[in-house]
């Protein structure tokens, strides 16, 4: 079967504006979008740029907008799209470097800002752990779903709130914060509290839940954000309550 790939191309050295270019590709039942792109680059147009590495939905490099939906090119079967013309654009929300390659520095920076690693309160233990941290199956289950994140950026690029608020940490970073916070080995909730509760944190979510719809690994960022909100609310409430009771205590002593 022949399929036309309609690719949004942009070369900052030549083009003033992005432009569409079409390529006709022979595809089979199991041809994936990435394979078609590789074929185009090898046989028709070596100047076409796109990112990929693992070709098996593990590295998270090949995210792009395929028929208006953010998807991994290596996971998307052309047959499943059910059309003989497939539109391919770079992921929205990110700056385009060339063709389908976008700059994701800001996205990774946001991921980093929630400290996506296990935190122990004891600094020495953090640097030099002396024992194994035993984890029971039900403790694993609490974060397993969120642990499947491959940091491909599809969720954040599909969030409608990003269109108007760039500072928003986004579903990827927030779901990863949750993944570590509910890990029985982690003690870093208070350390992450500030950034999660900030202006760019969990309160920016409007539950469009597009992130969960588009995750290629079945992660549920929309759920993680709501659970984080609960945690933040109850933590702030307890903090306020203890400050209040301390005050009462002090007053009653006077």
């Amino acid at each position: 079967m022949e399929v036309t790939l309609k690719i949004l191309r942009f070369d900052p050295l030549k083009d003033k504006k992005p432009r569409f270019q079409e390529y006709v590709v022979e595809v089979y039942e199991y041809t994936r979008v990435l394979e078609a792109l590789i074929w185009v680059r090898e046989n028709l147009d070596p100047s076409l740029s796109f990112r990929y590495s693992c070709r098996m939905a593990q590295c998270g490099s090949c995210g792009m907008l395929i028929d208006e939906v953010p998807r991994l090119a290596c996971k998307t079967l052309i047959k499943d799209l059910g059309r003989d013309e497939v539109t391919i654009k770079p992921l929205p929300k990110y700056r385009v470097i060339k063709d389908l390659v976008v700059e994701m520095d800001d996205f990774f920076e946001k991921h980093r800002s929630v400290k996506p690693y296990l935190i122990r309160k004891n600094r020495e233990e953090q640097e030099k752990p002396k024992k194994f941290y035993v984890q029971l199956p039900h403790e694993l289950q609490r974060y397993l779903n969120y642990g499947y994140c491959i940091v491909c950026g599809l969720c954040s690029s599909s969030c409608p709130n990003f269109d108007s608020s760039w500072e928003y940490l986004g579903p990827q970073a927030l779901s990863q914060a949750y993944r570590y916070i509910v890990d029985s080995r982690d003690e870093g909730f208070e350390e992450r509290y500030e950034v999660l509760n900030s202006n760019s944190g969990v309160w920016r979510c409007h539950f469009a839940s597009e992130c969960s719809e588009n995750c290629p690994k079945g992660v549920e960022p929309a759920q993680a954000i709501q659970m984080l909100r609960r945690m933040i609310l109850s933590f702030s409430f307890k903090k306020k309550l203890s400050l209040f009771s301390e005050k009462i205590h002090r007053l009653s002593k006077q």
Binding site: E68, P160, S164, A208, E210
Partner: peptide, 21 residues
């Protein structure tokens, strides 16, 4: 242009169409 994107329908699931509405 970004504001218009709140109301984009193409490629969106019913969840974010509900959000737009």
């Amino acid at each position: 242009e970004r504001v218009w994107k709140w109301f984009a329908i193409r490629g969106r699931s019913v969840n974010s169409i509900a959000y737009s509405f």
